[in-house]
């Protein structure tokens, strides 16, 4: 049986997290991608080009415009009988809808997998990634969310899957989309950036994040933050890297003025190379950093920016 991947998109662009989920799905069987939205034909076209995808299902309907779980879940459960697995990225949208689908199917969802051991057995982090659990599902359809950083992205081009239009969804009548405020940024997205520069409480203020932005501009990096910096109001909450924020695994992660609480480490410890800059040489961040630099960040960060 084939595997159904729920594409993440904003009706215009296919989100990168979908590509990682396609790679996970390809390890389980033939991959079909569901693009559910409104006026999302371009997304379906993009999904059809993704290497490894053999069919795209396009549900174009006003009730699906904002990916409300209340409307999307019944659509997916209607399709699920023909699939061994339903996969979604472990993003805010995927985490919102996948359990709703699973409950309607009366199956136990498996959240945030980082490894596929066999078609019914998965590895997932628990206790903020301090422990890994290997779990086996006996359910007929496995509803799974996939941690993007644990799977390589499928190539966005090279495929030529047919697009099949399917019927839309009914409006549940219990939920209505009112609006959204999405931060605009010129920088790469945090979860898919090659380099991430993150700041913590040590930055002291939101204004001081400017020195990180200068470094990030030099490196083409995304800017992140620890929960302490977010809670202190230095930066908006979508900057947060950690157990309760974003999980990142870039090629290079530069932690500036971050002590390295477990909660933060859970979100970045799978980065390829970690650099820590902190004035406290006892800070726990140095235990996971490949390269540690002890000193005043207000002097060291501009010096680093200069020398690149």
């Amino acid at each position: 049986m084939a595997v159904l991947v729920i594409a993440e998109h904003d009706n215009a662009v296919l989100k990168a997290a979908t590509l990682n989920t396609v790679t996970a799905a390809a390890g389980l069987g033939e991959v079909h991608v569901l693009v559910a939205g409104q006026g999302c034909g371009a997304v379906a076209e993009a999904a059809a080009q993704v290497a490894g995808v053999s069919k795209v299902l396009l549900a174009d309907d006003a009730a699906l415009a904002h990916a409300l779980a209340e409307n999307l879940a019944p659509l997916v459960t209607g399709l699920a009988g023909g699939y061994s697995h339903v996969l979604a990225p472990a993003t805010a949208a995927g985490k919102n809808v996948a359990p709703r689908i699973a409950a309607l199917l009366d199956v136990a969802p498996v959240s945030d997998i980082i490894e596929i051991v066999s078609p019914d057995t998965f590895v997932r982090p628990i206790y903020a990634g301090n422990v890994l659990a290997t779990v086996q599902s006996a359910d007929p359809v496995k509803v799974v969310t996939v941690r993007g950083t644990a799977f390589a992205a499928a190539a966005a081009s090279g495929g030529s899957a047919p697009i099949e239009r399917i019927s839309g969804a009914a409006d549940s009548g219990v939920a209505r989309f009112v609006g959204q405020e999405i931060m605009k940024s010129e920088r790469p997205e945090l979860t898919s950036a090659r380099v991430v520069v993150s700041g913590g409480r040590g930055l002291g203020s939101g204004e001081n994040f400017a020195i990180l932005e200068a470094l990030a501009d030099k490196l083409g990096a995304a800017v992140g933050a620890s929960r302490a910096a977010v809670d202190a109001g230095f930066v908006p909450n979508d900057y947060q890297v950690g157990q309760t924020g974003k999980i990142v695994a870039p090629q290079l992660y530069i932690a500036v003025g971050i002590s390295g609480a477990i909660q933060h480490l859970a979100g970045m410890k799978d980065s390829k190379v970690i650099v820590a800059i902190n004035k406290d040489e006892e800070a726990p961040i140095f235990q996971v950093a490949d390269y540690g630099l002890v000193g005043d960040l207000f002097q060291l960060v501009p010096e680093l920016t200069q020398s690149l």
């Binding site: 422990v131 140095f286 390269y291």
Partner: peptide
């Protein structure tokens, strides 16, 4: 519905060097 087959510590990240 889910059977936990194994619970283990993740691979440790070796600490690096100070520059």
């Amino acid at each position: 519905r889910l059977k936990t087959l194994k619970v283990a510590e993740p691979p440790k990240r070796a600490g690096g060097v100070k520059v």
